[in-house]
Simulated assay, not measured.
Amino acid sequence: MSVVSKGLENVIIKVTSLTFIDGEKGILRYRGYDINDLVQYGSYEETIYLMLYGKLPTRSELNQLKEKLNEEYDVPQEVLDAIYLMPRDADAIGLLEVGTSALASIDKNFKWKENDKEKAISIIAKMSTLVANVFRRKEGNKPRIPEPSDSYAKSFLLASFTREPTAEEINAMDKALILYTDHEVPASTTAALVAASTLSDMYSSLTAALAALKGPLHGGAAEEAFKQFLEIGDVNNVEKWFNEKIVSQKNRLMGFGHRVYKTYDPRAKIFKNLASTLMSRNTEAKKYFEIAQRLEDLGIKQFSSKGIYPNTDFYSGIVFYALGFPVYMFTALFALSRTLGWLAHIIEYVEEQHRLIRPRALYVGPEHREYVTIDKR
Protein backbone atom coordinates (compact mmCIF):
# COMPACT_ATOMS: atom_id res chain seq x y z
CA MET A 1 0.00 0.00 0.00
CA SER A 2 1.29 3.44 -0.91
CA VAL A 3 2.01 5.76 2.00
CA VAL A 4 1.68 9.52 1.63
CA SER A 5 4.11 11.60 3.69
CA LYS A 6 2.31 14.89 4.19
CA GLY A 7 4.68 17.79 3.65
CA LEU A 8 7.32 15.24 2.56
CA GLU A 9 8.19 14.92 6.25
CA ASN A 10 11.24 12.68 6.74
CA VAL A 11 11.41 11.93 3.00
CA ILE A 12 15.05 12.03 1.89
CA ILE A 13 15.38 13.56 -1.59
CA LYS A 14 19.18 13.88 -1.86
CA VAL A 15 22.43 13.09 -0.13
CA THR A 16 24.55 16.03 0.94
CA SER A 17 27.92 16.88 2.43
CA LEU A 18 26.85 20.47 3.06
CA THR A 19 24.82 20.67 6.26
CA PHE A 20 24.29 18.37 9.22
CA ILE A 21 21.48 18.85 11.74
CA ASP A 22 20.81 16.96 14.95
CA GLY A 23 17.38 18.18 15.95
CA GLU A 24 17.39 16.39 19.29
CA LYS A 25 20.71 17.80 20.49
CA GLY A 26 20.45 21.19 18.77
CA ILE A 27 23.51 20.76 16.57
CA LEU A 28 24.06 22.54 13.24
CA ARG A 29 27.23 22.09 11.17
CA TYR A 30 28.32 23.32 7.75
CA ARG A 31 30.72 20.87 6.08
CA GLY A 32 31.46 19.45 9.56
CA TYR A 33 32.13 22.79 11.26
CA ASP A 34 29.90 23.76 14.18
CA ILE A 35 27.80 26.88 13.61
CA ASN A 36 29.04 28.40 16.87
CA ASP A 37 32.69 28.13 15.75
CA LEU A 38 31.96 29.52 12.29
CA VAL A 39 30.18 32.54 13.75
CA GLN A 40 32.77 33.15 16.46
CA TYR A 41 35.93 32.71 14.42
CA GLY A 42 34.97 32.96 10.76
CA SER A 43 33.42 35.36 8.28
CA TYR A 44 30.69 35.11 5.68
CA GLU A 45 33.28 35.07 2.90
CA GLU A 46 34.96 32.08 4.52
CA THR A 47 31.57 30.40 4.72
CA ILE A 48 31.00 31.05 1.01
CA TYR A 49 34.29 29.33 0.19
CA LEU A 50 33.59 26.47 2.59
CA MET A 51 30.13 25.73 1.19
CA LEU A 52 31.19 25.92 -2.45
CA TYR A 53 34.64 24.29 -2.30
CA GLY A 54 34.33 21.99 0.72
CA LYS A 55 37.12 23.44 2.85
CA LEU A 56 38.08 26.60 4.69
CA PRO A 57 40.15 28.93 2.49
CA THR A 58 43.75 29.92 2.89
CA ARG A 59 44.39 33.65 3.17
CA SER A 60 45.28 33.77 -0.52
CA GLU A 61 42.11 31.89 -1.51
CA LEU A 62 40.02 34.15 0.71
CA ASN A 63 41.50 37.28 -0.85
CA GLN A 64 40.80 35.93 -4.34
CA LEU A 65 37.19 35.25 -3.34
CA LYS A 66 36.78 38.77 -1.99
CA GLU A 67 38.23 40.21 -5.19
CA LYS A 68 35.75 38.17 -7.23
CA LEU A 69 32.83 39.42 -5.12
CA ASN A 70 34.00 43.02 -5.46
CA GLU A 71 34.20 42.62 -9.24
CA GLU A 72 30.68 41.18 -9.60
CA TYR A 73 28.36 43.60 -7.77
CA ASP A 74 27.29 45.39 -10.93
CA VAL A 75 24.07 44.34 -12.68
CA PRO A 76 22.65 45.42 -16.07
CA GLN A 77 20.72 48.68 -15.98
CA GLU A 78 17.64 46.87 -17.28
CA VAL A 79 17.53 44.82 -14.07
CA LEU A 80 17.56 47.92 -11.87
CA ASP A 81 14.97 49.53 -14.14
CA ALA A 82 12.68 46.53 -13.70
CA ILE A 83 12.84 46.88 -9.90
CA TYR A 84 12.40 50.65 -9.88
CA LEU A 85 9.46 50.51 -12.29
CA MET A 86 7.54 48.58 -9.65
CA PRO A 87 5.46 50.56 -7.10
CA ARG A 88 7.09 51.39 -3.76
CA ASP A 89 4.54 49.34 -1.86
CA ALA A 90 5.37 46.17 -3.81
CA ASP A 91 6.32 43.15 -1.73
CA ALA A 92 10.08 42.95 -1.11
CA ILE A 93 10.38 39.28 -2.09
CA GLY A 94 8.21 39.96 -5.14
CA LEU A 95 10.71 42.64 -6.15
CA LEU A 96 13.58 40.20 -5.65
CA GLU A 97 11.78 37.75 -7.91
CA VAL A 98 11.56 40.51 -10.52
CA GLY A 99 15.31 41.03 -10.24
CA THR A 100 16.30 37.36 -10.44
CA SER A 101 13.86 36.73 -13.29
CA ALA A 102 15.31 39.69 -15.18
CA LEU A 103 18.81 38.32 -14.73
CA ALA A 104 17.60 34.90 -15.91
CA SER A 105 16.25 36.54 -19.07
CA ILE A 106 19.51 38.37 -19.76
CA ASP A 107 21.92 35.55 -18.86
CA LYS A 108 21.15 33.51 -21.98
CA ASN A 109 24.30 31.43 -22.30
CA PHE A 110 24.18 29.57 -18.99
CA LYS A 111 25.38 25.97 -19.03
CA TRP A 112 25.64 23.61 -16.09
CA LYS A 113 29.04 22.22 -15.09
CA GLU A 114 30.89 25.14 -16.68
CA ASN A 115 32.52 27.13 -13.86
CA ASP A 116 29.46 26.56 -11.65
CA LYS A 117 31.16 27.70 -8.45
CA GLU A 118 32.56 30.87 -10.01
CA LYS A 119 29.09 31.57 -11.39
CA ALA A 120 27.64 31.11 -7.91
CA ILE A 121 30.06 33.69 -6.47
CA SER A 122 28.98 36.17 -9.14
CA ILE A 123 25.32 35.55 -8.29
CA ILE A 124 25.95 35.97 -4.55
CA ALA A 125 27.49 39.38 -5.28
CA LYS A 126 24.58 40.41 -7.49
CA MET A 127 22.05 39.30 -4.90
CA SER A 128 23.57 41.89 -2.55
CA THR A 129 22.89 44.51 -5.20
CA LEU A 130 19.32 43.31 -5.71
CA VAL A 131 18.45 43.24 -2.00
CA ALA A 132 20.01 46.64 -1.33
CA ASN A 133 18.07 48.15 -4.22
CA VAL A 134 14.80 46.49 -3.24
CA PHE A 135 15.22 48.31 0.07
CA ARG A 136 16.21 51.57 -1.61
CA ARG A 137 13.25 51.36 -4.01
CA LYS A 138 10.79 50.82 -1.19
CA GLU A 139 12.34 53.70 0.76
CA GLY A 140 12.11 56.01 -2.25
CA ASN A 141 15.88 56.31 -2.72
CA LYS A 142 17.92 56.21 -5.91
CA PRO A 143 19.72 53.06 -7.12
CA ARG A 144 23.12 52.28 -5.71
CA ILE A 145 25.62 49.54 -6.54
CA PRO A 146 27.63 48.13 -3.61
CA GLU A 147 31.17 49.45 -3.54
CA PRO A 148 34.17 47.14 -3.21
CA SER A 149 35.39 46.71 0.35
CA ASP A 150 37.06 44.15 2.60
CA SER A 151 33.67 42.83 3.72
CA TYR A 152 30.57 41.61 1.87
CA ALA A 153 28.45 42.69 4.85
CA LYS A 154 30.00 46.16 4.85
CA SER A 155 29.48 46.65 1.10
CA PHE A 156 25.85 45.60 1.47
CA LEU A 157 25.13 47.94 4.39
CA LEU A 158 26.87 50.86 2.64
CA ALA A 159 24.71 50.31 -0.44
CA SER A 160 21.52 50.02 1.61
CA PHE A 161 21.87 53.11 3.79
CA THR A 162 23.09 56.66 3.41
CA ARG A 163 25.26 56.40 6.53
CA GLU A 164 28.47 54.63 7.44
CA PRO A 165 27.76 51.41 9.35
CA THR A 166 29.60 50.88 12.62
CA ALA A 167 32.02 48.02 13.14
CA GLU A 168 29.47 46.46 15.50
CA GLU A 169 26.75 46.62 12.81
CA ILE A 170 29.02 45.12 10.15
CA ASN A 171 29.93 42.30 12.52
CA ALA A 172 26.26 41.60 13.31
CA MET A 173 25.32 41.57 9.62
CA ASP A 174 28.21 39.25 8.83
CA LYS A 175 27.16 36.81 11.56
CA ALA A 176 23.51 36.94 10.48
CA LEU A 177 24.57 35.99 6.95
CA ILE A 178 26.41 32.94 8.31
CA LEU A 179 23.49 31.88 10.50
CA TYR A 180 20.94 31.88 7.68
CA THR A 181 23.30 30.36 5.06
CA ASP A 182 21.78 26.89 4.93
CA HIS A 183 19.52 24.46 6.74
CA GLU A 184 19.48 21.29 4.65
CA VAL A 185 16.36 21.07 2.40
CA PRO A 186 13.49 23.25 3.70
CA ALA A 187 10.74 24.40 1.33
CA SER A 188 12.76 27.04 -0.55
CA THR A 189 15.77 24.78 -1.10
CA THR A 190 13.48 21.99 -2.26
CA ALA A 191 11.83 24.38 -4.73
CA ALA A 192 15.25 25.39 -6.05
CA LEU A 193 16.24 21.73 -6.40
CA VAL A 194 13.07 20.90 -8.33
CA ALA A 195 13.77 23.74 -10.78
CA ALA A 196 17.46 22.86 -11.10
CA SER A 197 16.65 19.18 -11.66
CA THR A 198 15.05 20.20 -14.96
CA LEU A 199 18.42 21.81 -15.83
CA SER A 200 16.90 25.25 -15.66
CA ASP A 201 19.44 28.02 -14.99
CA MET A 202 20.67 29.19 -11.58
CA TYR A 203 18.73 32.47 -11.58
CA SER A 204 15.47 30.69 -12.41
CA SER A 205 16.16 28.20 -9.64
CA LEU A 206 16.64 31.11 -7.23
CA THR A 207 13.33 32.59 -8.39
CA ALA A 208 11.63 29.30 -7.53
CA ALA A 209 13.30 29.36 -4.11
CA LEU A 210 12.16 32.94 -3.50
CA ALA A 211 8.57 32.02 -4.32
CA ALA A 212 8.65 29.35 -1.61
CA LEU A 213 10.50 31.59 0.83
CA LYS A 214 7.77 34.24 0.59
CA GLY A 215 5.32 32.26 2.73
CA PRO A 216 4.92 33.13 6.42
CA LEU A 217 5.56 29.54 7.46
CA HIS A 218 9.08 29.69 6.03
CA GLY A 219 11.05 32.86 5.34
CA GLY A 220 8.25 35.13 6.48
CA ALA A 221 8.36 33.73 10.01
CA ALA A 222 10.82 36.37 11.25
CA GLU A 223 8.45 39.12 10.13
CA GLU A 224 5.51 37.42 11.82
CA ALA A 225 7.47 36.92 15.04
CA PHE A 226 8.47 40.59 15.16
CA LYS A 227 4.89 41.69 14.48
CA GLN A 228 3.97 39.95 17.73
CA PHE A 229 6.40 42.20 19.59
CA LEU A 230 4.92 45.25 17.87
CA GLU A 231 1.41 44.17 18.82
CA ILE A 232 2.38 43.62 22.46
CA GLY A 233 4.05 47.03 22.57
CA ASP A 234 5.29 46.95 26.16
CA VAL A 235 6.93 44.31 28.33
CA ASN A 236 4.15 44.77 30.91
CA ASN A 237 1.59 43.57 28.31
CA VAL A 238 3.32 40.28 27.51
CA GLU A 239 1.57 37.99 29.97
CA LYS A 240 -1.92 39.34 29.17
CA TRP A 241 -1.27 39.05 25.42
CA PHE A 242 0.12 35.52 25.77
CA ASN A 243 -2.83 34.28 27.82
CA GLU A 244 -5.35 35.77 25.41
CA LYS A 245 -3.73 35.07 22.03
CA ILE A 246 -1.80 31.87 22.66
CA VAL A 247 -3.42 30.08 25.60
CA SER A 248 -7.10 31.02 25.19
CA GLN A 249 -7.36 31.54 21.42
CA LYS A 250 -4.74 28.87 20.66
CA ASN A 251 -2.98 30.98 18.04
CA ARG A 252 0.47 29.90 16.96
CA LEU A 253 3.39 31.53 18.77
CA MET A 254 5.50 32.67 15.81
CA GLY A 255 9.22 32.06 16.14
CA PHE A 256 8.60 28.94 18.22
CA GLY A 257 8.82 25.35 17.05
CA HIS A 258 10.66 23.72 14.16
CA ARG A 259 10.06 20.70 11.94
CA VAL A 260 13.55 19.38 12.75
CA TYR A 261 14.64 20.87 16.10
CA LYS A 262 13.05 19.47 19.24
CA THR A 263 15.22 21.63 21.46
CA TYR A 264 16.51 25.22 21.40
CA ASP A 265 17.62 26.18 17.88
CA PRO A 266 21.39 26.87 18.11
CA ARG A 267 21.00 29.79 15.70
CA ALA A 268 18.39 31.38 17.97
CA LYS A 269 20.88 31.50 20.84
CA ILE A 270 23.39 33.37 18.70
CA PHE A 271 20.78 35.77 17.31
CA LYS A 272 19.66 36.43 20.89
CA ASN A 273 23.23 37.39 21.86
CA LEU A 274 23.54 39.63 18.79
CA ALA A 275 20.25 41.35 19.62
CA SER A 276 21.39 41.85 23.21
CA THR A 277 24.58 43.54 21.98
CA LEU A 278 22.91 45.80 19.41
CA MET A 279 20.07 46.96 21.68
CA SER A 280 22.48 48.99 23.84
CA ARG A 281 22.43 51.75 21.21
CA ASN A 282 18.82 51.45 20.13
CA THR A 283 16.06 52.09 22.69
CA GLU A 284 13.31 50.69 20.45
CA ALA A 285 15.29 47.51 19.83
CA LYS A 286 15.84 47.25 23.58
CA LYS A 287 12.10 47.46 24.18
CA TYR A 288 11.39 44.66 21.72
CA PHE A 289 14.23 42.56 23.09
CA GLU A 290 12.76 42.77 26.59
CA ILE A 291 9.34 41.82 25.21
CA ALA A 292 10.89 38.87 23.36
CA GLN A 293 12.71 37.67 26.46
CA ARG A 294 9.55 37.69 28.55
CA LEU A 295 7.57 36.03 25.76
CA GLU A 296 10.28 33.39 25.40
CA ASP A 297 10.03 32.53 29.11
CA LEU A 298 6.27 32.03 28.85
CA GLY A 299 6.55 30.09 25.60
CA ILE A 300 9.15 27.67 26.95
CA LYS A 301 7.09 27.11 30.09
CA GLN A 302 4.02 26.38 27.95
CA PHE A 303 5.53 24.34 25.11
CA SER A 304 8.92 22.86 26.04
CA SER A 305 7.31 19.58 27.17
CA LYS A 306 6.24 19.15 23.53
CA GLY A 307 9.73 19.82 22.20
CA ILE A 308 8.80 23.34 21.06
CA TYR A 309 11.44 26.02 21.64
CA PRO A 310 12.51 29.31 20.02
CA ASN A 311 13.75 28.94 16.46
CA THR A 312 16.10 31.19 14.51
CA ASP A 313 13.32 33.60 13.53
CA PHE A 314 12.39 34.57 17.08
CA TYR A 315 15.29 36.99 17.65
CA SER A 316 16.64 37.60 14.13
CA GLY A 317 14.07 40.31 13.43
CA ILE A 318 15.32 42.33 16.40
CA VAL A 319 18.85 42.15 14.98
CA PHE A 320 17.68 43.34 11.55
CA TYR A 321 15.55 46.06 13.15
CA ALA A 322 18.48 47.27 15.25
CA LEU A 323 20.57 47.47 12.05
CA GLY A 324 17.97 49.86 10.62
CA PHE A 325 15.83 47.60 8.44
CA PRO A 326 12.02 47.76 8.60
CA VAL A 327 9.93 44.63 9.10
CA TYR A 328 9.16 44.27 5.39
CA MET A 329 12.84 43.58 4.67
CA PHE A 330 13.38 40.69 7.07
CA THR A 331 12.55 37.94 4.57
CA ALA A 332 14.65 39.60 1.88
CA LEU A 333 17.62 39.62 4.29
CA PHE A 334 17.00 35.90 4.86
CA ALA A 335 17.16 35.45 1.08
CA LEU A 336 20.42 37.39 0.86
CA SER A 337 22.06 34.87 3.18
CA ARG A 338 20.28 31.73 1.97
CA THR A 339 21.30 32.37 -1.65
CA LEU A 340 24.59 30.65 -0.82
CA GLY A 341 22.81 27.58 0.55
CA TRP A 342 20.45 27.38 -2.42
CA LEU A 343 23.32 27.58 -4.89
CA ALA A 344 25.50 25.09 -3.01
CA HIS A 345 22.66 22.56 -2.94
CA ILE A 346 21.70 22.84 -6.60
CA ILE A 347 25.34 22.62 -7.68
CA GLU A 348 25.84 19.55 -5.50
CA TYR A 349 22.67 17.96 -6.88
CA VAL A 350 23.26 18.65 -10.58
CA GLU A 351 26.96 17.82 -10.54
CA GLU A 352 26.89 14.71 -8.34
CA GLN A 353 23.45 13.08 -8.33
CA HIS A 354 21.32 14.64 -11.01
CA ARG A 355 17.94 13.12 -11.73
CA LEU A 356 14.72 14.92 -12.69
CA ILE A 357 12.63 15.33 -9.53
CA ARG A 358 9.27 13.87 -10.46
CA PRO A 359 7.24 12.53 -7.50
CA ARG A 360 3.95 10.70 -7.75
CA ALA A 361 0.50 11.28 -6.25
CA LEU A 362 -1.82 8.70 -4.73
CA TYR A 363 -5.10 8.85 -6.68
CA VAL A 364 -8.24 8.72 -4.49
CA GLY A 365 -10.85 9.96 -6.98
CA PRO A 366 -13.69 8.01 -8.66
CA GLU A 367 -13.14 4.96 -10.85
CA HIS A 368 -13.85 5.03 -14.59
CA ARG A 369 -16.88 7.16 -15.45
CA GLU A 370 -18.82 7.14 -18.71
CA TYR A 371 -18.81 10.49 -20.47
CA VAL A 372 -22.29 12.02 -20.89
CA THR A 373 -22.69 14.62 -23.61
CA ILE A 374 -23.82 18.05 -22.49
CA ASP A 375 -27.39 17.80 -23.92
CA LYS A 376 -28.03 14.67 -21.79
CA ARG A 377 -26.74 16.00 -18.44
Results as ranks from 00 to 15, higher is better:
8 L>F: 11
16 T>E: 07
20 F>E: 04
26 G>M: 04
29 R>V: 06
33 Y>D: 02
34 D>S: 11
36 N>E: 15
37 D>C: 04
38 L>A: 04
39 V>H: 15
40 Q>M: 10
42 G>H: 12
47 T>F: 03
49 Y>Q: 08
52 L>K: 10
53 Y>C: 00
57 P>F: 08
63 N>M: 02
66 K>Q: 15
70 N>Y: 10
70 N>I: 04
71 E>V: 00
72 E>S: 14
80 L>S: 09
82 A>K: 12
93 I>H: 12
94 G>T: 06
98 V>K: 13
98 V>F: 11
99 G>F: 10
99 G>A: 12
100 T>H: 13
105 S>Q: 07
107 D>Y: 05
110 F>H: 00
113 K>Y: 04
116 D>H: 06
118 E>G: 01
122 S>T: 15
123 I>F: 06
125 A>H: 00
126 K>P: 03
127 M>W: 08
128 S>Q: 08
135 F>K: 03
139 E>A: 03
141 N>T: 07
144 R>N: 13
145 I>D: 01
145 I>W: 01
148 P>D: 04
153 A>T: 05
155 S>F: 10
161 F>G: 12
161 F>Q: 13
166 T>V: 13
171 N>C: 06
174 D>M: 08
175 K>W: 10
176 A>R: 13
177 L>V: 06
177 L>S: 07
179 L>P: 02
187 A>D: 04
188 S>Y: 03
195 A>W: 01
196 A>M: 13
204 S>Y: 02
213 L>D: 09
220 G>L: 01
224 E>F: 12
229 F>V: 11
231 E>S: 14
231 E>K: 11
233 G>V: 05
235 V>P: 05
241 W>I: 06
242 F>Y: 14
247 V>Q: 14
247 V>L: 14
248 S>Q: 15
248 S>H: 15
248 S>M: 14
251 N>E: 13
253 L>Q: 07
254 M>Y: 05
257 G>D: 03
262 K>Y: 00
267 R>F: 07
268 A>K: 09
269 K>V: 13
270 I>L: 00
272 K>T: 06
275 A>R: 08
283 T>I: 15
286 K>S: 14
287 K>Y: 11
292 A>C: 09
293 Q>Y: 10
295 L>I: 03
296 E>C: 02
297 D>M: 15
298 L>G: 06
302 Q>F: 14
302 Q>M: 14
304 S>G: 08
305 S>K: 11
313 D>L: 10
318 I>P: 12
318 I>A: 12
319 V>P: 02
321 Y>E: 03
323 L>W: 08
334 F>H: 11
335 A>E: 01
336 L>N: 00
341 G>T: 09
342 W>Y: 05
344 A>L: 04
344 A>P: 07
344 A>I: 10
348 E>Q: 12
348 E>P: 05
350 V>M: 07
350 V>T: 10
350 V>Y: 03
351 E>F: 03
355 R>M: 13
355 R>S: 12
357 I>K: 05
359 P>R: 01
368 H>C: 01
369 R>H: 05
369 R>E: 08
370 E>T: 07
373 T>I: 15
373 T>F: 15
376 K>Y: 10
376 K>F: 04
376 K>D: 12
377 R>P: 03
